[in-house]
Design a protein around this nucleic acid. Structure first.
Length: 352
DNA sequence: TAAACGTGGGG
DNA sequence: TCCCCAAGTTT
């Protein structure tokens, strides 16, 4: 089977050919046909979990500059990592990133394990990321399945089972297509196709190298895949947040424990919003003459939306309550503040 | 298995 | 404005 004409090429070969000439150039990527550095693949893959390329890219450069390799990252202060991650969301990724770096240095001699099964054991590395690192950094013929590839497989094979039920079937199709060599390029090619051609809303089938292999393209209904289970309605929650300021300008903050929403991050004192019972109950951290700011701060999370009433109060030169601390106004920007808290502070400043 | 876990951009 | 959801993992 030498020199098979393009017309008779396999879908896999068509995708690899397309990648050679149409691939996106991304900072963590190796050129087609080459392997990328494990540290860069890992760092980018963690950042890209549920996160757009455009959003993750500046964070990737910042991390790489601060911590050029896994040993440097392992030595970093956890607070510095959380601060650098602030705004990216899903903060358990940052905590696991540090734990993973330390584990690699302590138990793997500072080198990433090459085998998928061993990668899978590391904190923050699940089935997708383990396969991606094994394929892109080590050349393994790993079966990489992310959201893009799920979308492409359900369209190519017109899979009617709704996600996540279709996942085993998707994986099986992807396994059949994955080449023995260049599996990393193949996966990245499919992700590029998913991002630029096989889009969620209006797929560009005529430009797709898989058009001839795609049942949904033939049927003209690609946009209806993947089928999805019914979405649950997002509950709404309420809470109160308190900005206490001393005469020297410093503001009262607290650092969250490692788990749960905003785990490991810096927050303004607040009433809590995690449970239905706790919502809306004002619970100031200090007995001050609190003033309520006009208008609420709203924020939408994946699993609930939130309205926050903002209170401001002038404090005398008093000690911070247990578990809290005063932070100078100029130092606030260097805290690991999630976007919600920055939003609250912005509203407060604009009310001053 | 299903829920928890952030955020910003696009239609 | 509102809804959807993006290179998932953990519990």
């Amino acid at each position: 089977m030498l020199n098979a004409p393009q017309t008779f090429a396999t879908p896999t070969q068509r995708v690899l050919d397309w990648y050679g000439q149409a691939h996106r150039k991304l900072p963590w990527r190796a050129p087609p046909g080459q392997l990328a550095e494990p540290y860069r693949v890992w760092l980018s893959e963690i950042m890209l979990q549920q996160t757009n390329v455009a959003t993750a890219t500046p964070y990737y450069f910042n991390f790489l500059q601060k911590w050029p390799d896994v040993a440097a990252l392992a030595r970093a202060e956890p607070e510095a990592i959380m601060q650098a991650w602030a705004g990216l969301g899903y903060y358990s990724r940052a905590r696991n990133l540090h734990a993973c770096a330390q584990l690699i240095c302590a138990e793997h001699g500072g080198e990433f394990p090459r085998r998928e099964a061993q990668l899978l054991k590391l904190p923050g590395i699940g089935p997708y990321t383990a396969a991606a690192i094994a394929a892109m950094a080590f050349g393994a013929s790993a079966v990489v399945v992310d959201g893009n590839i799920e979308r492409i497989m359900t369209r190519m094979f017109a899979l009617e089972a709704p996600l996540p039920k279709a996942k085993p079937e998707i994986r099986s199709h992807m396994a059949s297509l994955t080449p023995a060599r260049h599996a990393g390029d193949f996966a990245q090619a499919l992700m590029d196709i998913g991002a630029t051609l096989c889009a969620v809303k209006s797929p560009n089938c005529t430009a797709c190298p898989l058009q001839a292999d795609c049942l949904a393209a033939k049927a003209g209904n690609a946009a209806t895949y993947p089928r999805r289970a019914e979405k649950v309605t997002r509950p709404h929650r309420q809470g109160h947040v308190y900005i206490a300021q001393k005469l020297d300008g410093s503001v009262l903050v607290q650092t969250n424990g490692p788990r749960g929403l905003f785990g490991g991050m810096t927050c303004l004192p607040h009433s809590g919003w995690a449970t239905k019972d706790a919502q809306g109950q004002a619970l100031p951290p200090l007995p001050l003459a609190w003033q309520e700011l006009k208008g609420e701060v709203t924020h939408v999370f994946t699993h609930f939306s939130l309205s926050l009433t903002v209170h401001s109060g002038q404090a005398a030169d008093m000690a911070a309550p247990n578990g809290m601390r005063w932070v100078g106004l100029a130092q606030l920007e260097f805290e690991a503040l999630p976007s919600l808290m920055r939003k609250v502070l912005a509203k407060w400043r604009e009310s001053q």
